[in-house]
């Protein structure tokens, strides 16, 4: 099998490596770069746990050949917070946007992409955009509350009120 030289930035750090043609982006991110925040779930592009941003575009890393990343800029969950958490990350904690946390990296990446396209998404926009990210714990209500809170839209309950 052919191998290819790749050069890409992952969360601002440049990586240069040689990969076999059949390797997937998720494998290179997790195994070669050691950035294990991005998770492998269904492996068939349905669950969204492996969501990453490639040049700002929301994609499933479990479906992408690693060579696709050549010359591109990849953002994963590790690249969201600088020193402080982003408002979206903080809202996920305060509004119950996760429980087990396995889908959370993908949810945060997808929601980050949503907020960059639509800074103030309404209920329907959130449901349409976030449909590709499965969560088995929250029932999605906390995820929607978190996105609303981060976008400054909608009346959020204080986190300890039921």
């Amino acid at each position: 099998m052919s191998t290819h030289r790749l050069s890409f930035t992952l969360n601002g750090t440049k990586h240069e490596l040689e990969v076999a043609a059949d390797r997937l982006l998720i494998e290179v991110i997790r195994d070669d770069c050691g950035a294990t925040g991005t998770k492998l779930g269904c492996a068939v592009g349905v669950c969204g746990a492996c969501s990453v941003l490639v040049d700002g575009e929301l994609l499933s890393a479990c479906l992408l050949p690693a060579v696709f990343a050549d010359g591109r800029r990849i953002t994963t969950v590790e690249g969201l917070a600088k020193n402080d958490l982003t408002p979206l990350q903080d809202a996920f904690i305060r509004e119950g946007g996760f429980q087990c946390g396995i889908c959370t990296p993908g949810q945060l990446i997808a929601a980050t992409a949503l907020l960059s396209e639509q800074p103030r998404p309404d209920h329907e926009a959130i449901r349409t955009w976030m449909m590709g990210n499965l969560c088995r714990c929250t029932g999605y209500y906390g995820i929607e509350r978190a996105i609303q809170k981060a976008s400054g839209v909608g009346g959020q309950s204080p986190p300890n009120r039921l």
């Binding site: 994963t76 969950v77 590790e78």
Partner: peptide, 18 residues
Amino acid sequence: QPEYRVEGRDKVTGAARY
């Protein structure tokens, strides 16, 4: 007081180890 998950930061930054 508001509830704030003790593992929250790790889970939203990708640091939580599975």
